[in-house]
Computed example of a mutant assay.
Amino acid sequence: MKDEHNPWQTHSTKEIYKNAWIRVREDKVTTPANTAGIYSVVEFQNLAVGIVPIDEEGNTWLVGQWRYPLNQYSWEIIEGGCPKGESPSDCALRELKEEAGLTATSTEAFLEMSLSNSSTDDKAIVYIAKGISEGQAEPEETEQLQLVKLPLAEAYQYVMEGRIHDAISIAALLKLKAMQVF
Rank of each mutant, 00 (worst) to 15 (best):
M1K: 02
K2Q: 01
D3M: 07
E4W: 12
H5Q: 10
N6E: 09
P7H: 13
W8E: 05
T10P: 03
T10R: 08
H11M: 13
S12E: 15
S12P: 05
T13Y: 07
K14Y: 06
E15Y: 01
I16E: 15
I16F: 04
Y17R: 12
Y17M: 12
K18E: 13
N19R: 06
A20L: 08
W21T: 11
W21R: 14
I22C: 13
I22H: 09
V24A: 09
V24Y: 09
D27T: 07
D27Y: 12
K28I: 10
V29S: 14
T31R: 12
T31S: 11
T31I: 11
A33L: 13
T35S: 12
T35G: 03
T35P: 04
A36G: 10
G37P: 07
V41A: 09
V41T: 15
V41L: 14
V42T: 15
E43W: 12
E43R: 10
F44M: 09
N46T: 13
N46K: 11
A48F: 05
V49T: 13
G50S: 05
I51G: 02
V52Y: 04
I54N: 07
D55K: 03
T60M: 07
W61A: 08
V63M: 09
Q72I: 02
Y73A: 06
S74P: 02
W75Q: 03
E76G: 01
I77W: 04
I78H: 04
I78T: 08
I78W: 05
E79S: 04
G80D: 02
C82W: 05
P83G: 08
P83M: 05
G85F: 14
G85K: 14
S89Y: 02
L93G: 02
L93F: 03
R94P: 05
L96E: 03
L96K: 08
K97W: 06
K97M: 12
K97N: 14
E98R: 11
E99A: 06
E99H: 02
G101Y: 01
G101N: 00
L102R: 01
T105S: 04
S106P: 00
S106V: 01
T107F: 00
T107G: 00
F110G: 03
E112L: 00
M113L: 08
M113D: 01
N117Y: 07
D121M: 04
K123R: 15
K123H: 14
A124E: 06
I125L: 02
V126D: 03
V126E: 02
A129W: 00
K130W: 00
G131W: 06
G131Y: 07
I132W: 03
S133C: 04
S133I: 00
Q136T: 15
Q136P: 03
Q136I: 13
E138I: 10
E140I: 08
E140P: 06
E141C: 05
E143N: 11
E143M: 15
Q144R: 09
Q146V: 00
L147T: 11
V148C: 03
V148M: 04
K149E: 12
K149S: 13
P151Y: 05
P151F: 03
A153G: 09
A153R: 14
Q157G: 06
M160W: 14
M160F: 12
M160I: 10
R163K: 14
R163D: 01
I164G: 03
H165N: 07
D166I: 00
A167M: 10
I168G: 05
I168K: 12
I170S: 02
A172Y: 05
A178R: 07
